[in-house]
Design a protein around this nucleic acid. Sequence first.
DNA 1: TTCCGTGCAAAAGGTTTGCACGACG
DNA 2: CGTCGTGCAAACCTTTTGCACGGAA
Lengths: 135, 135
Amino acid sequence: MAALKYSRQRECIRAFIQSCQDHPTADTVYAGIKAEFPNISLGTVYRNLSLLVELGEIAKISTGDGPDRFDCNTKPHSHFICTHCHCIQDIELADIDCIKEQAARNFDGTITAHTTTFYGICRHCAETKKFKKSS
Amino acid sequence: MAALKYSRQRECIRAFIQSCQDHPTADTVYAGIKAEFPNISLGTVYRNLSLLVELGEIAKISTGDGPDRFDCNTKPHSHFICTHCHCIQDIELADIDCIKEQAARNFDGTITAHTTTFYGICRHCAETKKFKKSS
DNA sequence: TTCCGTGCAAAAGGTTTGCACGACG
DNA sequence: CGTCGTGCAAACCTTTTGCACGGAA
């Protein structure tokens, strides 16, 4: 239902995310958009992010620690989360889908999707030795 | 540091979780503990759950949708989350660890852990056909 | 003109924290 | 007796929502 009208704010949010190499939070998007829309509200950012996720134009990444992230890459891929600096990086796995079949064999129900997340120390943190006590 | 003293509340929480077949939320634990400790506070439940996770006696499961869950099974395994009823079930995958090696080959950093979560419709929801419009 | 999207602000979760008191060692 | 854990309540952080107004079709 709900007829989806054009909005300059939504286009700006979409463009911002698609220009991001990293995986911004709603708040980062908000800050980035403010240059062009000084009066935009955080609520609008959240509403449009949810909408873009529903439309399949971006993906939402739940980190389980801190705010959700958004990803312009909607192709299936995995993520690495640094336990020290909390940065997120994409990881491509060749046969990641095979584990879905493997899981389906052991499971009594319908599996439609799966996500795999890796944790560790990213190269930057490892080099700067800032991870003495991994947070 | 901090010398860790015995507490009856903590033991009760540990016992409650270890007697659970499912994956309770902090609030479920709180409710279950109240029979024995009518005056216990939710803050105490959260503090002890975090502590038990740190001690490695239980595991925390972030669902990315709703409250965190806790799991008495600390052995490596995966989870299935029903997108309809939001129940969580364990899934054992034979060679789940192989994907860590595979990921490490494509990645410039140190991978120490990984989690895989499957989504779909559980058997109970499928049978009762309540999932017409998967929420 | 008819809805939809926006801005604002308040509310809604879920979780953490400061404080004074009680319990463990 | 010195600390740590507890209960209570307030604070916190992220996200959602109600409402009146402005903008797209």
